[in-house]
Design a protein around this nucleic acid. Structure first.
Lengths: 167, 167
DNA sequence: TATGTACCCATAAAATCCCGTAAAATCCCC
DNA sequence: GGGGATTTTACGGGATTTTATGGGTACATA
C-alpha cells in the first residue's frame, strides 16, 4: 500500500460552457502527491450512478493487485482471467490532467454516464472520491451512505450562485 | 513488473480508405515509452473476438509470465507445454510502426480476424489494450466485462461523424 | 508498371495553455 | 478578536497546440 491517501470532504463545482470543471481545492494536494503531477484518474463507478476518481498511484496499485491474484491462482493451478479483471477495472478509466488552476475537461462519455449536467458534487470516500450529479444522488434508491443534509446544503448553495439556471 | 504501463480508457478511431488508422492519443505516450519508439505490437486475442495491442517491452513480460506458469506447474507436479503457450501468445503478433501523426496500417489478416470495418474501439485493460469492432463488442455473448454505456456512447459518436455511412 | 508503404501537407475540431477577474479564504498587525 | 491586506480559488474568454483524418507524392519491390 503505497500512500496513505484518504480522500474526505465534499464540495460542489460547476461545469462551464467548454466542458471544464475544477478539482475542488481540498482534493488537489492529495492528487498531486499521489500522481506525482497534476493528474487525475476518472472512471465510472461499478455499482453507483456516479464517477470515481483518484490519483495515478492507485491505478498502479490496482494493476499489482490483479497481478497478485493471478500469481496466487496459477500457484494453485487455477484459472484466472487477467483480461476480464483488467477490463472491468480499467476500460472506463481515463487519465486526465488538470491545469495549474485545477481545471480539466470532462470527457463527454464520462459526463453522459455520470449524468452530470451543471453542478458536480465531489466527495471523498476514503481511497477514492465520487463525482455525482447532486440531484441524482438525492434521488437514488441505491444504498449510498451519504448524509443527505450535506447534499442538500451544497445543492442550495449551487442554486443560488447560478440563479437557478441549471436543469 | 517492468514499467507501470497501465493502459486504460477508451476511444474510437476510424479506418480510412487506405487502411490507415491512428492510435488514440491517450495510448501513444505509453507505447512510445514501452517500445522506445513508435512501435506497436498487435495480435489476435486468445479468447475474445478482438485484437490486442501493447508496446514492445510487454513481449519480454509475456515471456517471463510463461516461465512463471511453467514453474508453478512443475511445483505442483503438473505438465506445462511452454511451446504451446508461446505459440498461443506470439504467433499472431506483429510489430507495427506508427508515424509521427500516430497512424499505422492495419494488416489485412488482423483486420479480417478482428472483424474491423470502419470504426475501431480501443480500450485499455491494464497491461494491454483491445481493438474491437464496437458492434461486435456489443453483440458478443462472451463475458467481456466492459461498461456497455461506454461502447454505446462511442458508437453513437462515430455514427454522427460519418453520417451513418459505415457498414 | 501496378501496388503497397512511408512521408508530406492541409484542415477542422478538440485540448491545452495563458491571462484576467471577482469572490472567498487566509494571514497579520494592532 | 476585528478589519483590512494578501493569497488562493473558481470561473470566463482568447490564443496556441495537438489530434484525427483526408489527400497527395515519391520510393521500393514484385
Amino acid at each position: 500500500m503505497s500512500g496513505a491517501f484518504a480522500y474526505s470532504g465534499s464540495a460542489i463545482s460547476a461545469i462551464d460552457d467548454k466542458g471544464r470543471l475544477s478539482v475542488p481545492a481540498f482534493l488537489r494536494k492529495n492528487l498531486v502527491e499521489s500522481s506525482d503531477g497534476r493528474t487525475l484518474c476518472l472512471g465510472t463507478h461499478e455499482k453507483w450512478n456516479c464517477l470515481v476518481g483518484f490519483g495515478l498511484s492507485r491505478k498502479a496499485d490496482m494493476l499489482t493487485e490483479i497481478e497478485k491474484q493471478w500469481e496466487a491462482a496459477i500457484a494453485r493451478g487455477d484459472d484466472f482471467d487477467k483480461d476480464a479483471a483488467g477490463a472491468r477495472k480499467f476500460s472506463s478509466l481515463q487519465d486526465l490532467s488538470f491545469d495549474a488552476s485545477g481545471r480539466f475537461i470532462l470527457p463527454p462519455q464520462l459526463r453522459e454516464i455520470g449524468q452530470l449536467d451543471n453542478n458536480v458534487l465531489f466527495h471523498g470516500i476514503g481511497t477514492t472520491f465520487c463525482l455525482w450529479n447532486p440531484q441524482v444522488l438525492l434521488d437514488t434508491t441505491d444504498d449510498v451512505p451519504v448524509d443527505r443534509r450535506l447534499v442538500e446544503h451544497h445543492l442550495k448553495e449551487a442554486g443560488q450562485k447560478s440563479g437557478g439556471k441549471q436543469k
